[in-house]
Design a binder for these strands. Structure first.
Length: 723
RNA sequence: GCCGGGAUGGCGGAAUAGGCAGACGCGCCAGCUUGAGGGGCUGGUGGGCGAAAGCUUGUGGGGGUUCAAAUCCCCCUCCCGGCACCA
């Protein structure tokens, strides 16, 4: 990889190269963990987590794509395990709010992050359970539909289910139902379309608004992980609840009527989830639903039966991995002292080298006795190390900070270096990192900011997302193995032709299907440049004095000079503002085409003209240099220069020469192109119109018609509107 | 279902602030050069009508705004990406 990059002439500063899997680096990853741990942002909990059977490790939510493992594509299953998490949810709101600071990020990525965080506003409402002192709470985004609650649903995994059915005649059937659901084990992907199933549990809750008793069910469509693991069902205004109600013949009660039609409890086919006028809702009747929503929340708060609440879909970041690769989590378990963090001075906790890689489902580190057994830093007694390693996304969440001080030994980074380098001015990466690396890194910087380690809130000022390069319909990636090795193309066509081909194919932000069809064109272009310079080589021979007399510079030379300035402008702007190398290259091609087509014989040029042409050729080489550096460097030396092109200033364009003194003006009749005319720049309206009306083609169209009006856009166009 | 982004010749793409649609390249066709091949050079190349000049049509489809729309607005179709029984 490094060799390929070097071969391609990509100018990284290899002095700053770091390797996240080296102890010098992961020492500081472990240090980060300890800082987060001390702040309460790293914690261990038992939870239902994603497990990839093929990788034999747990995964974070972000690493499960369509129910499959992000790395290997295996269907992910659920397991209950005790694992380490980073409390990214503490930063959910800040991650959303600070998107304002990310003005130069693509909207697409911000949207993806917004979706992922999934903020929803609503209320938490407490319901008491009938014939009991217990209460339960639900989260709802629609407190205005509270009067429409006709049943209550718990997730089958909810601990309350057992509690509420214990010792009743429902205990057995509910248990059987839970087993049935668990057995089905539908994948995450199919969950959305799976049939709704439920079971009444024999108990009731009291609706705090109207004190109605409504039955409690368990059903497979309620997620344990979101909200409180239970929902208040409002079938009239929620499609899922309606489907369930119709299947089990539960009542439906409309509490919001839309403007132009009247909904009926009996015939309702589709839940109405928009706004409307409140009905069947006691003192809130006749209010508009959005208004009622506010007032009901006030009412809930006043009566202390609920409160306004914001819920996020974002889950905490599960960072434990049962893999060898990754920094060991610097934690020691002591039978006396419990969970003890490894003291900073004992870092790094080295990855052992005597491990057995048999996939056991437990971390390979377990097999290293040397690693596992240690002493407790607190009491000195016998203790065991945490055997899981950290998600490698932890390593990559802060590497850009390390780049600022890559070899520092006593600290992860130097404050002065951060001040100088950070935040990153321009970050470039694939869109596939939108909610993985980019979200994690933002979280890290926010946490480090709050701890006073970094003086900025966002790591990356400007983000550019490259399109994905696909092959055989799938994104090219190391893990999928459908990568093109550029070696063969280099050998056959050379590195610079390959660079031209890649850059010319399409602008970098779009996805593209890999094709090397353009390689021959790229090679042809470079050959044409080479040949032109070669044919004009006498220009560069100082000794040869022009014996052509005369000072007049021919029009062709002037035109070429202007074209050169236009090209400088175009190439500079395309590269600087948009990374659009494809159009930059095409501009250079145009310049070259012009050079060929004017066919100036250097032997027939006077001194002035030779100086201009020489400059044009040199500028062309300079402009092409970022695209084909090896080629240009060689040409540069071939044309008699000793200093490397890298030390040469980027060419500047001259605004005055840039502008054409004769402008081609478009002549339209009723908006249709009919003719073109050349006029001097900034020619006044009356003059141009007069000229235009004198054109034979235009005269033909205008004859016998009445001119209703004329549109004049200076230096651009004339449009004559006829009846 | 919701949220983004798209759709322009045979192909990759261009048109950056509403003003020449198809820059540049690939491919293809014809010609020149060459013993041949390769290479190079010249010309042509969205569709229709035409010998040509030219006319006409044309940026996924339909409607609209405008003197003027690939570009702005509304509706629809399809493709890609994200989220998705998220209460």
């Amino acid at each position: 990889m490094k060799n390929t990059l070097k071969t391609m002439g990509i100018s990284y500063d290899w002095n700053r190269e770091i390797s996240t899997c080296s102890p010098e680096y992961y020492k500081w990853t472990q240090w980060m963990f300890l800082q987060l741990y001390q702040k309460g942002l790293a914690y261990k909990k038992k939870a239902v987590v994603n497990w990839c059977p093929s990788c034999a490790t747990v995964l974070a939510n972000e690493q499960v794509v369509n129910g499959k493992c992000e790395r290997c594509g295996t269907e992910v299953i659920k397991k209950e395990l005790s694992q380490w998490f980073f409390k990214i949810t503490d930063y959910a709101q800040q991650l959303l709010d600070d998107m304002n600071l990310l003005e130069e990020w693509p909207e697409r990525v911000l949207t993806m992050q917004r979706n992922w965080i999934g903020r929803s506003e609503g209320a938490r409402v407490r319901f008491s359970i009938a014939e009991s002192n217990e209460t339960v709470s639900v989260f709802t985004t629609r407190p205005d539909t509270l009067f429409g609650v006709t049943f209550f649903v718990l997730s089958p995994e909810h601990p309350m289910v057992e509690k509420l059915t214990k010792g009743t005649s429902f205990e057995e059937p509910v248990r059987r139902f839970k087993e049935e659901i668990a057995k089905e084990n539908i994948s995450e992907k199919d969950l959305a379309i799976a049939e709704k199933k439920g079971c009444f549990i024999g108990r009731y809750v009291i609706n705090p608004m109207n004190l109605e008793k409504v039955p409690i069910w368990v059903a497979n469509y309620v997620l344990m992980e979101y909200g409180t693991g239970m929902v208040m069902a409002v079938p009239a205004h929620d499609q899922r609840d309606l489907e369930f109600a119709r299947k089990y013949h539960l009542p439906v009660r409309v509490v919001i009527q839309p403007k132009h039609k009247e909904l009926s409890n009996e015939t309702l086919q589709e839940a109405y989830s928009d706004e409307g006028t409140m009905v069947n809702s006691g003192q809130f009747n006749r209010l508009f639903s959005s208004e009622a929503r506010r007032l009901i929340i006030d009412y809930l708060e006043e009566k202390e039966i609920g409160k306004k609440e914001v819920n996020y879909r974002l889950r905490d970041w599960l960072i434990s991995r049962q893999r060898y690769w990754g920094a060991p989590i610097p934690i020691i378990y002591c039978p006396k002292c419990g969970i003890v963090p490894v003291p900073e001075e004992d870092l790094p906790v080295y990855l052992p080298d005597d491990v057995d890689f048999k996939p056991t489902g437990l971390s390979p580190l377990l097999s290293s006795k040397k690693f596992l057994y240690t002493t407790c830093p607190k009491c000195g007694g016998k203790a065991k190390r945490e055997i899981d390693t950290m998600d490698t996304f932890v390593c990559s969440s802060w590497y850009y900070l390390r780049f600022c001080s890559p070899h520092l030994e006593n600290k992860p980074f130097e404050k002065e270096e951060l001040d100088y380098w950070m935040p990153v001015d321009q970050y470039i990466g694939g869109v596939e990192h939108a909610i993985l690396h980019l979200l994690y890194s933002r979280f890290f910087v926010k946490a480090l900011y709050d701890m006073g380690y970094v003086p900025f809130k966002e790591p990356f000022k400007r983000l550019f997302t490259q399109g994905m390069v696909c092959k055989d319909g799938a994104a090219m990636s190391k893990s999928k193995g459908n990568v093109v090795t550029p070696g063969n193309i280099f050998n056959q066509f050379g590195v610079d032709s390959t660079r031209v081909m890649i850059l010319f194919a399409s602008p970098p932000e779009v996805d593209m299907e890999w094709s090397d069809k353009g390689i021959e064109g790229a090679e042809k272009f470079l050959n044409r440049v080479w040949r032109y310079v070669y044919l004009s080589r006498s220009i560069f021979e100082e000794t040869e004095q022009s014996n052509i007399q005369g000072k007049a510079i021919r029009k062709e030379v002037k035109l070429l000079e202007r074209k050169m300035h236009q090209t400088i402008k175009k190439v500079t702007e395309d590269i600087e503002n948009r990374f659009h190398f494809n159009t930059a290259i095409s501009a250079i091609m145009e310049l070259l085409n012009d050079l060929y087509s004017y066919d100036l014989k250097s032997s027939q040029m006077n001194r002035q003209e030779r100086i201009i042409l020489k400059n044009i050729i040199e500028v062309m080489i300079k402009l092409l240099n970022p695209i084909a550096p090896h080629f240009c460097e060689e040409l540069w030396h071939q044309t008699g220069h000793d200093v490397s092109l890298y030390q040469i200033q980027w060419p500047q364009y001259d605004q005055k020469i840039l502008q054409e003194e004769e402008i081609l003006v478009i002549v339209q009749i009723n908006g249709k192109l009919r003719d073109k005319i050349k006029v001097v720049r900034n020619c006044e309206e009356e003059k141009v119109i007069k000229l235009v009306l004198g054109l034979p083609k235009i005269e033909k169209w205008v004859r016998g018609k009445k001119i209703l009006k004329t549109i004049f856009v200076p230096n651009k166009l004339v449009n004559i509107v006829l009846n």
